[in-house]
Design a binder for these strands. Sequence first.
DNA 1: TTTATTTACGAAACCGTTTTCGCGATTCTT
DNA 2: AAGAATCGCGAAAACGGTTTCGTAAATAAA
Lengths: 337, 337
Amino acid sequence: MKNINIKELALKLKLSVSTVSKSLNDSYEISEETKRRVLETAELLNYVPNPYASSLRGRKSKNIGVVIPEVADSFFSLAINGIESVAKQKGYHVLICLTHESFENEQTILKEFQGGRVDGVLLSVSRETTQCSHINDLIENGLPLIFFDRACDDVETAKITTDDFESGYKATAHLIAQKCNEIAFLSISDSLSISNKRLEGYLQALGDNKIKVNSKHIILCTNEAEQNYLLIKKLLQQKNRPDAILASVEKLTTPVYMACEALALNVPKDIKVVCFSNLETAAILNPSLTTITQPAFEMGKAAASLLFKALENSNFSIVKEDVIIPSILVVRRSTGH
Amino acid sequence: MKNINIKELALKLKLSVSTVSKSLNDSYEISEETKRRVLETAELLNYVPNPYASSLRGRKSKNIGVVIPEVADSFFSLAINGIESVAKQKGYHVLICLTHESFENEQTILKEFQGGRVDGVLLSVSRETTQCSHINDLIENGLPLIFFDRACDDVETAKITTDDFESGYKATAHLIAQKCNEIAFLSISDSLSISNKRLEGYLQALGDNKIKVNSKHIILCTNEAEQNYLLIKKLLQQKNRPDAILASVEKLTTPVYMACEALALNVPKDIKVVCFSNLETAAILNPSLTTITQPAFEMGKAAASLLFKALENSNFSIVKEDVIIPSILVVRRSTGH
DNA sequence: TTTATTTACGAAACCGTTTTCGCGATTCTT
DNA sequence: AAGAATCGCGAAAACGGTTTCGTAAATAAA
């Protein structure tokens, strides 16, 4: 059925546009009888309001922007579910924008947001992001922005993260407890806070256990699976081959397993593996994978909830704070004996 | 830096709003000199056009809607990447809407689209969807809509799918070739075309090989992982236990593996497994999983490309056609000996 | 030189809502 | 019963762009 606009609806009802609008928005100015008539006819004639007209007039879009590096990643897709669950309940839409780990894309997306496309932003920065002027620009412009998972330290806003340092520490300590002392660390960025904090936790755990750091065992991976595979293979062919790998992001899981298989290294006998990962399949991998599992859904939910608090109370402003939701170490066979 | 609107920009430039607008849109009416000045100042003053104002006036949103059941699924997240890759190139945004496999949600979302939020729709229907009036309503209203993966037969539009029947056949034939003759089929919907076509391929393969169908081996799964796990476990505890499982969707992988493990059934010795799946981790599962891998990225790309053809040529209309991009059977250890 | 055409720009309408304000009619005060 | 307050509704402005149309000046054609 053809849908109509408010003017045509008003015409059919022999009412003014304003009365119809107010009825639809349940204004106190309008009698119950009229409201009922309007709602009824609106339904009948398939009236669906144009969101852009409302947004333009109301200067709010009822959209929130979610800027993430990738969608093909368990952490982010679970986080999206968390975000969406609260957005839906608040009557908001979620605009998902992918940076594909590119700083330039991130800049472009945030710049566009300044046009008013969204009322607030949830951001997980790209691996390339080292400076934050584009983010500060947005905030200066009055857009509430909250980081989740991957944050920038020098932006005055809230961050919903997990306990990256502790997780890195916990994972490393677990490996040490399993008699590993040549533990490699796979990073994906030398600027990303999560990557660095996890690394610091790793270093601290090594230090606390009097294990000396081998810089050749700290690998900065790339954004290309194939290249990472080669890097990891090279790592495992060093003369002082590591006896454990701690991979700081989920996407490194497959290349790690592949490299081990290619080199006929048995996990966990020859080498133990822990990944930061939310893969549902972790439990059924060969061998099942010990993971640091992040509270992805909860983080998304927490970030969105905080954002909506700011959107709904104009006198509530987001302060610089760290909300930390702990990850858990799930021990499986990849770190067994 | 505070961003401004076109009026303020015009004021600074001592030009009219119309001249500024035309300059920004590279109109032939404006001199090169003026255009240059406008662009320069716009950049300088951080002018970002309000997309809602443009949408309202131009009666097009530069958005396409992508309606899918879930995002935490390799097929859909890869498809999103394919869709996004072409949308980005065309200067469009992608509005991802999740039905969570609920028909009611799907209806609500499509109804909202009638308000003009999007210029076109890419749809993969929910598992509950059995009738299509909400889809036909949308099309009648002039919105181009294309199915991908999960389609409705009785809607007059294009469908980008994979060769579900052949894939079901191929997978089953492969299992038969591995000496299986009690092959179970796990479905997720008795109405979804993909599910049914895969089932038909399965049935045809059984028939062609003179294997009689055991209706107790055809299981309709649910949307709950836990429940599916129990269903599968029950299946595997029947007196005539199947010697193979063909799972028609990716999300069944984990419950299948878990159930086998719980019952101490060795894959592939006791039971062979094939899943329709785009899991990157298929190769490193225990044992590595034989999959029917769908061309997810390509399907997304094809669907989006076709949609844009319709959006860009007003005299090109989408006809009822089936674009079929074949899946491939990737044989791994879960169907070995 | 006169007229026709082109060039470069501005005024104003328009897109579909929401909201402010005004006003007649009804109900409430006293 | 007269004035005040309330109720129910409509006219019109506003949101920030784009587009149509008009027009003065510059250039081309006659």
